[in-house]
Simulated scan of single mutants.
Amino acid sequence: MSQTASPIPSAATPELSQRLLEVDNLGVSIHSDEGVFRPLNGVSFTIDRGQAIGIVGESGCGKTMTANALLRILPRSAEITSGKATLRRHHAPEAGLDLLQLPADGREMRAIRGRDIALIFQEPMSAFSPVHTISNQIGEAIRLHENLGRRATRDRVVELLDLVGIPQPERRADDYPFQFSGGMLQRAMIALALSANPSLLIADEPTTALDVTVQAQVLQLIKRLQREMNISLMLITHDLGVVAHMVDYVYVMYLGQVVEEGPVDAIFDQPHHPYTKALLKSIPSLTEQQQVLTPIRGTVPDSRHPPKGCPFHDRCEEVVGEVCSQQMPAHYDVGSKHRARCFKYTPVQVSAAAGRANGDADE
C-alpha cells in the first residue's frame, strides 16, 4: 500500500500567517588579511507575530552578526554565503520576502529597516550623533517612513519620549545626547526604534552600559511595550538570567550555530546541551547562599580555524567519545518543541543509556 506525502502548508494556513520571520541555514564569511572568519555557520530560527525570543551565548558566538545580517548592515568585507531569511510583511503576509536576496543599499531594504525591523543598538552613547538634538534624530527616522509635516513630526517625537518615560518630554526633546544620562539615552534609543511602528524589534544587549537598577527599568520597559504594541521581540544577550523573564522561546548559540532551542521554561528546568548547562552554572543564585559558580573552561574557538566535529567538544565535560571530535551532530528532539545538537541524544546513545538504567534497576 503506497503512502501519499502530506501537502506542504501554503502561506495562507494559520501557522504561516502568524509567522513573521523564518531564518534558514544563514551563513556569513568575513575576508581579512588574517584569513577568512566564519562567524555564522548555518543559523536557523523563527519568530511569530507578537512572540518574544531570546538569542544567548558568549561573546563571539555570532549573536550580533545574526542581527546585522538580517538588516544587511554587515561590514564591506563580509558576505552572506548561504541561507534564506523570509519576512512576511503585514500588507502581504502570503508573499514571503527573502531579505538576503535584496540589495543591501536598495530602496526596499532601506524601507524595511525601521518600518518592519528596528534595532536597539548596544551603545546608545555612540549610536546618536553628538551634534544633533534628540528631536532632530528621532524626527528624521519618522520622516523617512511617514509623510508628516514639521509640527506633526515634532508632536510624534514628544509622544514617543513620553511613552518611554522621559520626564518633561516637550523640553528634553531639544536636548543633545550628551545632556541625557545613560538610562535616558537608552530610552531615547527605544523611542527611535519604535518611531515607525515596526513589526519586529531587535534588542542587541540593550543594557550593556547601564547600572543594575537602570537595567531592570529598561528591560521592564521593553517587555511592557512589546506586549502592549503586540510586536515581536528578538532579545540578544549573553546573560541567560535576563531572558528568563523576557522571552517565550530561547535559542542558544555557540560559534555561529544554534546548539539548543526550546521554550524558556524547558531551557531553564531541563537543559540538555552541555553548553547550555555550563551557561546556567555560571549564573549566581539568590536561593543557594553557598553556591560555587563554575566557569566554562577555555574560550570560544577562533572562527578562522573552527574545531572539527562538534564545535564545543574541546570544552565539554560530557564528551560521548571520538565521534564528538570527528563529526557534527544533528539536531535531535529532546522534548516538546525542544531540540539539542549533541551526540548524547542520538538513538544509539539514548538506547545505551536506557539499557544501563535497566541494568542498574535489576541489580
Rank of each mutant, 00 (worst) to 15 (best):
P7K: 10
P7H: 09
A11M: 13
T13Q: 13
L16Q: 12
L16R: 15
Q18N: 15
R19P: 00
L20W: 03
L21R: 03
E22N: 15
D24L: 07
N25D: 15
D33I: 08
R38N: 13
P39H: 10
N41Y: 02
G42D: 05
V43P: 00
S44K: 08
F45A: 06
T46G: 02
I47P: 00
D48E: 14
Q51C: 08
Q51G: 02
I53A: 01
I55H: 02
I55E: 00
I55L: 13
V56R: 00
G57F: 01
G57A: 07
E58P: 01
S59D: 09
S82Q: 13
G83Y: 04
R88C: 03
R89T: 11
E94A: 12
A95Y: 09
L100N: 09
R107N: 11
R110I: 02
A111L: 11
A111V: 00
L119Q: 03
L119I: 13
I120E: 02
I120N: 01
E123K: 06
E123Q: 11
A127G: 07
F128V: 06
N136G: 07
Q137I: 08
I138D: 00
A141N: 04
A141E: 02
I142F: 10
R143C: 08
L144H: 10
H145A: 04
R150G: 03
D155K: 12
V157K: 01
D162C: 05
L163F: 05
Q168D: 14
E170N: 09
A173I: 06
P177Y: 05
G183H: 05
M184W: 00
Q186W: 03
R187W: 03
A193Y: 01
N197I: 01
A203L: 10
T208N: 08
T213G: 11
T213D: 11
T213Y: 06
V214Q: 08
L221A: 10
L221N: 08
I222K: 03
K223Y: 02
R224M: 11
S232C: 07
L235M: 15
L235Q: 05
L235T: 02
A244L: 12
Y249M: 10
M253R: 02
L255Y: 01
V258D: 00
E260R: 06
E260Q: 05
E261K: 14
V264Y: 01
F268V: 07
D269S: 13
Q290Y: 06
Q291T: 06
T294M: 12
T294G: 03
T294D: 12
V300G: 00
R304F: 07
P307L: 06
G309Q: 05
F312Q: 01
F312L: 06
E318F: 03
V320R: 04
V320M: 09
V320T: 10
V323L: 13
C324A: 11
Q326K: 15
Q327T: 13
P329G: 08
A330K: 13
Y332T: 12
D333G: 09
V334Q: 12
H338V: 12
G355D: 14
R356E: 14
N358D: 12
